[in-house]
Write a protein that binds this DNA or RNA. Structure first.
Length: 627
RNA sequence: GCGCCCAUAGCUCAGCAUGGAUAGAGUGUCGGACUUCUAAUCCGAUGGUCAAGGGAUCGAAGCCCUUUGGGCGCGCCA
C-alpha cells in the first residue's frame, strides 16, 4: 500500500465531500504531486467547473476548506493552488513510518493484479542455426523482464522458448555440412553457435547465388526434415540441439531463465496442425477458394482492405503463419496436449527447473499453458501476429487472450556498421544474420566485462581479482539489460559499439553504484538497522523525497504490469538512485554525534537499499555491494 | 499503391494511455565540488515556434483531421 495509502485517504475524503454536496459521477484523479506542489494533487476542481459554474480556483478553495475540516490521519492540510489544482500535504512522521516499515517486508512492491491466474510469456525463439546477436537480446530481455514484473503482479508465469528446428535456416546450415564440406567441429575452440552462424550459414547462403543447383538440394533437405527417421532429421537434431545449448548459455549468463522449450519439429510430428485445421474449417474461419488468384488454396479473409491470407497452398502444404496457429492454440490450452515433458539436459542458473517437450510417452505430463498468452516478437511481424491474435480471440471467445507484444528492432549505427565492413553513408543499418552483418551478444558482453574489470581495478585496487570478476559480470549484465529496456518498445535502438556501452549517466552502473554507496554506509555503521526509530527526525527535503520515492514502488509495478512496459521499472530504479544520490550529497548518516538521528537515517538507507535491490531484481540486474 | 510505427534541447530519450500548474533526464559544451559515509557521484550555466497546418475544448506536447519527413510491413517465401 505505502504511498497508495495517502492517495486512498484523499480519494475517500473527496468522495465523501462530493456526496455531501450531492454530486456524483466525477472521475477525478488523485496522484503523487509534481515537485513543489505538495505531496498529493487532485484535478477535481477542473472537472466540476462547468457543472458548478465557478472557476477551478474557487472550487479548489471550497474543497480545501471542507477538506481541512475532515478527519485525516496521513494528510496535514489541503491547499488550493491558483491554477485550480487541489494539493495535499502529508503527515510525514506517520507516512515515513508506514513506508519504511513496509519496505522491510518481502512482499513490498507486490501488487494483486493477476489473482494467481496463469499467463504464458514466449520470447527468444531464435532459429537454432546461429549465435544470438544484439537484436535478439532486446527480445530476450523484454520477455524476461515482463515475466519478472508479471510474477510480482500476482501472475503465475510460464516462460516458453520456441525452437524452430525444422525451418529453412536450419536447412541452410545442414546443406553446408552435407554438401559444402563444412566440418561439424568448430575451429580452435570457437563456440559452436558462432561457428554455425558466422561461417556455415553466411558462406552457404553466399553459395546460392553462385550455384543455382543448390536450391533443389535445399528443398529436399527441408522436406526430409519432416520425416523423423531420415538421416537429415537425425543430423538436424544433433546440430540444432548443440546450437541451442550454446544459445542458452548466452541467455543464462544474462540471468534469463525459461520454464519450457518447445520444439517445432515435435509440433509438426504431433499432428496438431490437422486437428486445428479441421476446427478452423468447422468454425468457418478458413475458406476454400474455387477461383481467383488464390484458386485451390485455403485462405483467411482479410479484414476490411486487407488482402486474404493463404493458409494452405494449392499443393496442400501449410504456409508459415499456419504453423503458428496450432502452437498459439496450444499455448492457450485450447487443444489436447500431445506432448510429454522431460527435464532439459543442462540445468539453468538458480533453482528454476527447465523442461522440454518430447513425444516419448515414457515421460511425465506437465502443464505450461496459460489463460492468457504474451508473445514477444518484433513489430515487423505485426501483420501475421494480428491474424493469429484475431483467430485466437475467436477460438477462446476472449479478444485479448492472445497478445502480441511487439517492439522495434535494433539497428547498427553507421560507425559500427563500418567496423563490420559496410559503408552506409551516415545512415543506420539493419542487421542481417544471412549477410553476417550483426554484433553478437557474447562479444558485447565480453567487451563490457573487460572495460568494467579495467575500471574497477583502477578505482578499487584493494579488491581481489575474484571479487572483481563477480562485479564485472554483474555490472556488464546490468548495463546490457538496462540498455535494452530503458526506452519504450516502439523506439528503434541504434546500437553503437562505443556509445551504447557507456558506464556513466543513465545506465545500470549509475544505479548499481548507489547500492554500493548505501551498502558501505551500513557496513561502516557496524549496527543492525532497525525500524524502531524516531521518524519525526526525517525532515530534510532530500530525506522525504527519498522516502516518497521508496513508497511509489508498488504503483510503478502496477503501471508496468498493466501496460506491459518494462521501461517503467527502469525509470523507477533510476528515480530511486537519483533520490538517493541527492540525499547522500546533502546528509551525512554516520559520525553525527546523535545516535537517534543516525539510527533513523540508517533505517532510511537500509529501506532504500532493499527497495532498490527488489526493483532491480525485476530487471534481472544484480547489486554488487562494492564497485 | 495500401497498412502499421516514429517525429519533443546539437545528439539519445522521458512526459502522451487518463488534456490542466513551471515541458524533464542523460549526453555534449563551459564552469565549479574529493584531508569529510566510494567523484561510475554531485552542483551551476548553456540549450525547446513539442515536425507543419487546421479542428473540437475554458485549456493541447498529449485528442481528431490533413500535410511533410523518416522507418517497417504488405508472397501459394520463412
Amino acid at each position: 500500500m505505502t504511498f497508495q495509502s495517502i492517495l486512498d485517504e484523499v480519494q475517500n475524503n473527496l468522495n465523501r465531500i462530493l456526496s455531501e454536496m450531492n454530486i456524483s459521477d466525477v472521475s477525478f484523479s488523485v496522484e503523487p504531486a509534481k515537485p513543489g506542489f505538495g505531496d498529493v494533487s487532485s484535478n477535481i476542481a477542473f472537472l466540476l467547473a462547468k457543472q458548478l459554474k465557478k472557476s477551478p480556483k474557487d472550487i479548489a478553495e471550497l474543497f480545501s476548506e471542507h477538506y481541512n475540516k475532515s478527519v485525516n490521519t496521513l494528510v496535514t492540510k489541503s491547499e488550493a493552488h491558483p491554477s485550480g489544482y487541489l494539493n495535499f500535504f502529508a503527515n510525514w512522521e506517520k507516512l515515513s513510518q508506514l513506508i519504511l516499515s513496509e519496505s522491510n517486508l518481502d512482499t513490498f512492491g507486490f501488487v494483486e493484479l493477476g489473482n494467481k491466474s496463469t499467463i504464458v510469456v514466449e520470447h527468444t525463439s531464435v532459429n537454432p542455426n546461429k549465435a544470438l546477436h544484439i537484436g535478439h537480446i532486446r527480445n530476450i530481455i523484454i520477455g524476461d523482464t515482463i515475466s519478472r514484473i508479471l510474477r510480482k503482479a500476482d501472475y503465475r508465469v510460464n516462460v516458453l522458448n520456441y525452437i524452430d528446428d525444422s525451418g529453412l535456416q536450419v536447412a541452410d546450415i545442414l546443406l553446408g555440412f552435407t554438401h559444402l564440406g563444412f566440418s561439424q567441429e568448430p575451429p580452435d575452440g570457437k563456440k559452436f553457435d558462432h561457428y554455425c552462424g558466422d561461417d556455415v550459414y553466411v558462406k552457404t547462403t553466399q553459395k546460392y547465388e553462385e550455384d543455382s543447383s543448390l536450391e533443389e538440394i535445399r528443398k529436399s533437405i527441408l522436406k526430409d526434415l519432416e520425416d523423423e527417421s531420415s538421416d537429415i532429421a537425425k543430423l538436424a537434431d544433433i546440430v540444432t540441439r548443440k546450437v541451442l545449448t550454446n544459445q542458452l548459455k548466452t541467455c543464462w549468463n544474462l540471468s534469463v531463465t525459461y520454464d519450457c522449450l518447445n520444439f517445432e519439429s515435435q509440433i509438426i510430428r504431433s499432428g496438431l496442425w490437422s486437428k486445428i485445421f479441421e476446427k478452423l474449417k468447422d468454425m468457418k474461419l478458413v475458406e476454400f477458394e474455387n477461383d481467383g488468384k488464390n484458386a485451390g488454396c485455403w485462405v483467411i479473409r482479410g479484414d476490411g482492405k486487407e488482402e486474404d491470407k493463404v493458409i494452405v497452398r494449392s499443393n496442400g502444404v501449410a504456409t508459415y503463419v499456419a504453423k503458428d496457429i496450432p502452437y498459439a492454440a496450444w499455448k492457450l490450452g485450447l487443444v489436447e496436449d500431445p506432448f510429454y515433458y522431460e527435464k532439459y539436459t543442462t540445468s539453468q542458473s538458480g533453482a528454476h527447473e527447465l523442461w522440454q517437450t518430447t513425444l516419448n510417452p515414457n515421460n511425465s505430463k506437465e502443464n505450461f499453458t496459460g489463460q492468457k498468452v504474451i508473445t514477444v516478437i518484433d513489430s515487423r511481424q505485426a501483420r501475421l501476429q494480428k491474424i493469429v491474435t484475431d483467430l485466437m480471440g475467436k477460438f477462446k471467445s476472449a479478444p485479448d487472450a492472445y497478445v502480441h507484444l511487439g517492439y522495434e528492432s535494433v539497428t547498427l549505427s553507421s560507425d559500427t556498421a563500418k567496423t563490420l565492413g559496410l559503408e552506409t553513408d551516415g545512415k543506420q543499418a539493419q542487421m542481417s544474420g544471412r549477410k553476417g552483418l550483426y554484433v553478437s551478444a557474447d562479444s558485447v558482453y565480453e567487451l563490457l566485462r573487460e572495460r568494467v574489470i579495467a575500471e574497477t581495478t583502477k578505482r578499487r585496487p584493494e579488491i581481489d581479482s575474484s571479487e572483481i570478476e563477480t562485479i564485472a559480470h554483474n555490472v556488464s549484465v546490468g548495463t546490457l539489460r538496462y540498455e535494452m529496456i530503458k526506452q519504450d518498445l516502439d523506439k528503434i535502438i541504434t546500437f553503437d559499439l562505443t556509445k551504447s556501452l557507456s558506464l556513466e549517466g543513465d545506465t545500470a552502473p549509475y544505479i548499481q553504484y548507489t547500492f554500493a554507496r548505501a551498502s558501505r554506509i551500513l557496513e561502516k555503521s557496524g549496527r543492525t538497522p532497525s525500524i524502531d526509530v524516531d521518524y519525526s527526525l526525517l525532515v530534510e527535503k532530500s530525506e522525504l523525497d527519498l522516502v516518497k520515492t521508496i513508497g511509489l514502488f508498488g504503483i510503478h509495478v502496477r503501471d508496468a504490469a498493466n501496460n506491459l512496459s518494462p521501461k517503467v521499472v527502469a525509470k523507477y530504479c533510476h528515480d530511486l538512485a537519483v533520490s538517493f544520490n541527492s540525499f547522500y550529497e546533502k546528509n551525512k548518516v554516520l559520525g553525527l554525534d546523535d545516535e537517534k538521528l543516525e539510527d533513523t537515517r540508517l533505517c532510511l538507507v537500509n529501506s532504500f537499499k532493499m527497495t532498490l535491490e527488489n526493483a532491480l531484481d525485476l530487471l534481472g540486474i544484480d547489486t554488487p555491494s562494492r564497485m
